[in-house]
Design a protein around this nucleic acid. Structure first.
Lengths: 350, 350
DNA sequence: CTGAAAGCGCTAACAC
DNA sequence: GTGTTAGCGCTTTCAG
């Protein structure tokens, strides 16, 4: 059978076609494709030529069926439009690619039902592992995946039981640092804008906020705590409410940078100057925070690094080199820029 | 064979296991799973119970092997950390999910070799279709995928031959509008910062820039054209160079918003005020551009809408409802904010 | 309406 | 070194 005969069939060329053209068995082609050094150079070359001639691409499907490994990982996240995620996605994607894995993107839009649906799809796709960064505490996603034999790493979320690995930043510590900084600057009425209901990151950052207030002997005022859902519009509304109070806060700590930016926007449109009339702190240190027109004071955690750790962990688990679940918490630090109003008191760390 | 016997085997449960437990043939299970209305309600219920009892998830792999459709699309993009992309990714992801497709993320980092590698992986994965948004004109990616029988939609890139569908915004028109606006404001030394070498978006936006200059009888000054690679750091360096010239430009039009932000950052650190000492225009209208602290004047194209069009087109092509390649170009409009310095001359469109 | 058999493209196990 | 056989889990004929 000639090259043209095979191509004339107009259907995907298979390992058999290559074998026939090269005059060898399918097994030999397989050995060549998988770089197994058991093939005579001459044979190898014949096979390679046939592959090129037919433009053969081995089917990852068929291979996956028998090897039971798809070389695929899932990445579940809450909202890709939050600038904190892309950094993380980049880290996961590049490490995964280097290891020969592709990543399936699952953007849940913070909808638990959608997360649930994605979990099913991921199981059906027989992915090797999943990184979950959608960060709700009550989600059963990790358990479902695990019981389907899929490795899981939780990203920035505390597991309820310690059966799965997780990596995260020190959210409580960051919340403390941010609030403590505002307190040190003399603020006493400090508002807090929460993230998504049930998100452990938000809960922990709030715990840090409360710890700092407690140290100063301040009772947290429920009126000064709003819900922002980690969403710019929602946070914007919450900020408006806070800033229109008769006895408005002199400082706002938002559970992430996106919401902090909304606070600034709200303040500015109400004629309040930041930081003179209102100090603002965020969390995440997204790229735009360091822009000179913004200068957002915030808490920095190395999400790029964290995502690489998460991926490495997941890949090790997939390779079976990880029997025990691992916990890893990266430290965070305070980044003092413009919006907290500390410029005259502290050197700018930039 | 009882439920416990089957589960005791500790290997993925298959359609046969379900069939055995329900006391029917695999075919019947298959009919139930695929919602084919040919199964008696009673049988159907027995099967459903068995599925639930065994926690059975049909393998998309095995199904894909025989149906030759993976319900998978690839999304190739240049740099996920560019804030213009997430908006687009969100549109693609949500529409794909609704249609029961998952998306494989391919972040090329603007590296043609990496793009090439991803194309091979995508072919091996037997994806049904691919949206390419990595935007180099000379790439062979679309041709390779097409000849492997995979549907392709080009996003914001002109195909060299019209064998593939594409959607995009009117880049040339946007470049013209931006430049024309700066000219109308009285600027005559207008710099342009290019994007990635070979990216059609950059080439076309520059064509618009040149057309506007030509209308005013201005010869483009090569010294006023820099390369920014659509990258904040690279653009920052380019901007520095431009702004330190003895005869520096009075306005800069950057081929995207991320680079425009770098220009502003560079100007600010050199002590130049924007817009008083330097007018700046971007392109894309990313979310942060409308923030009150930024107020970036820019060109708006509806990337969310565009990504939805691209996905719809791709899905139609996959379903075989699209025989002819389609071209779709969305219009853009000028968004006048703070950084172009036109606030006193024009109403603010916001 | 349901069952049996064949086969999708590949690799693992075993021959030669 | 290389060929042969069986089978991964599903759907699709084709019978009943």
């Amino acid at each position: 059978m000639s090259k043209d005969d095979i191509l004339a069939q107009r259907r995907p060329v298979t390992i058999k076609d290559v074998a026939r053209l090269a005059g060898v068995s399918p097994k030999t082609v397989s050995n060549v494709v998988n770089n197994r050094p058991v093939v005579k150079p001459a044979t190898r070359q014949r096979v390679l030529d046939a592959i090129r001639a037919l433009d053969y691409h081995p089917s990852a499907l068929a291979r996956g069926m028998v090897t039971r490994s798809r070389r695929l990982i899932g990445l579940v996240l809450a909202d890709i439009t939050n600038p904190a995620y892309p950094e993380m996605v980049e880290g996961v994607a590049s490490l995964a690619r280097q290891a020969g894995f592709m990543v399936m993107l699952c953007n849940t839009g913070r909808d638990p039902d959608e997360e649930q649906r994605y979990v099913h799809l991921l199981i059906e796709q027989r992915v090797d592992g999943v990184i979950i960064a959608s960060s709700r505490m009550d989600s059963q996603a990790a358990e479902m995946l695990t019981s389907a034999g899929i490795k899981v790493v939780l990203f920035n979320r505390h597991p309820q039981q310690y059966s799965v690995s997780f990596v995260g930043v020190d959210n409580e510590g960051g919340g403390y640092l941010a609030t403590r900084h505002l307190l040190d600057l003399g603020h006493r009425r400090i508002a807090f804008i929460r993230g998504t209901r049930g998100a452990s990151t938000s809960i922990e950052r709030e715990q840090g906020y409360r710890r700092a207030l407690a140290e100063y002997g301040i009772e947290p005022d429920p009126e000064l705590i709003g819900w922002g859902d980690y969403h710019p519009e929602v946070a914007r509304t919450a900020a408006d409410l806070l800033l229109r109070m008769k006895n408005r806060p002199t400082a706002v700590f938002a559970a992430n940078d996106v919401m902090a930016l909304s606070v600034i926007d709200a303040a500015t449109s109400l004629g309040l100057r930041v930081p003179e009339d209102l100090a603002v702190m965020g969390f995440d240190d997204i790229a735009i925070a360091s822009h000179r027109l913004i200068g957002l004071s915030t808490i920095h955690g190395d999400l790029g690094q964290l995502s690489r750790e998460a991926t490495t962990l997941l890949l090790e688990a997939i390779n079976g080199n990880l029997t025990e679940p691992v916990r890893k918490i990266l430290p965070v630090y305070l980044v003092v820029r413009r919006t907290c109003g500390a410029q005259r008191l502290t050197a700018i760390h930039e």
